[in-house]
């Protein structure tokens, strides 16, 4: 038991140092701008279809599933507001972040893990190229900035999905639907929900990189790194979400 606790604390210490190094390297030139843009493209642009489809389905399904209950209470007209609030405050950020954890964290973990076990990281190191700066800083930064954008996309597409879902049984114009959505939304619904997505993106990136950088023991460890990255990143999303909700609740 003591050995287990010691191991966990050691891991926590190593992870904290890894995060600390990110912030140290972030502000020290040279900046790998080209690699950062390439990572934004890979993490952000290439995730657009997946996030778009998922966002649409979330909005559609949420509307269709909520309708019977809302109708029972005579509150069918509240559907656009309820769906958009649910999507923006909780469902879209968490589901999108979980999708990103599956796609981005596993991808980063596997890529860096593979580079580690095939000595590519060492090759960079002996060529006097800082692999941490080139690989980790760019990926974590790209993930931190791209996940919020993907969540915003999921919000918008999800709301549109809600509009389609609403029109399955009733009829409402797009403009009226969106004006009802906006009427029910407050800045305080959007801002905290958006802020937490930066943290989701940061943890997705940093956990993927950490797991990849610490892969050891041959090709099997690449799979383990990818798997562990997804599990840990997913768990971290729930923890960050819980903390974010508590903090938001304190202020609003």
């Amino acid at each position: 038991m003591i050995a287990f606790i010691k191991k966990q604390l050691t891991q926590a210490g190593k992870f904290s140092r890894f995060i600390g190094r990110f912030f140290r390297e972030l502000f020290v030139p040279p900046f790998q701008f080209n690699e950062f843009i390439r990572q934004c493209y890979t993490i952000g642009y290439k995730s657009l279809p997946l996030v778009g489809i998922t966002g649409f389905i979330m909005g559609l399904v949420l509307t269709i599933q909520s309708r019977p209950t809302m109708t029972k209470f005579g509150a069918e007209s509240w559907l656009p507001g309820m769906v958009s609030l649910s999507l923006i405050r909780e469902i879209a950020p968490v589901i999108t972040a979980l999708i990103c954890a599956g796609k981005i964290a596993s991808g980063i973990g596997a890529e860096l893990g593979s580079m580690k076990v095939t000595s590519q990281l060492n090759a960079m190191e002996v060529s006097a190229i800082n692999p941490y700066k080139y690989l980790v800083v760019t990926r974590v930064l790209a993930s931190t900035l791209m996940v919020p954008l993907l969540v915003i996309l999921a919000d918008l597409v999800g709301i549109y999905g809600g509009y389609i879902g609403y029109n399955v049984h009733s009829s409402i114009g797009l403009l009226r639907y969106f004006s009802e959505v906006i009427e029910n939304l407050d800045f305080l619904d959007i801002i905290p929900a958006t802020i937490k997505t930066f943290f989701f993106g940061f943890f997705i990136g940093v956990i993927g990189c950490y797991k990849g950088f610490n892969a050891s023991g041959g090709t099997a460890s690449v799979g383990r790194a990818a798997n562990s990255a997804v599990v840990t990143a997913s768990l971290s999303i729930f923890v960050v979400d819980m903390l974010a909700v508590q903090i938001t609740d304190l202020f609003y």
Binding site: E111, M115, T118, Q120, N122, A123, E125, S127, A128
Partner: peptide, 24 residues
């Protein structure tokens, strides 16, 4: 330190057992 070591590393070539080419 890391910076000073990198200056030395630039004067040394290292050929890895597996080549260690960047596979991407």
């Amino acid at each position: 330190n890391y910076k000073e070591l990198n200056k030395i590393r630039l004067r040394i070539g290292f050929m890895f057992q597996n080549g260690a080419l960047y596979d991407s």
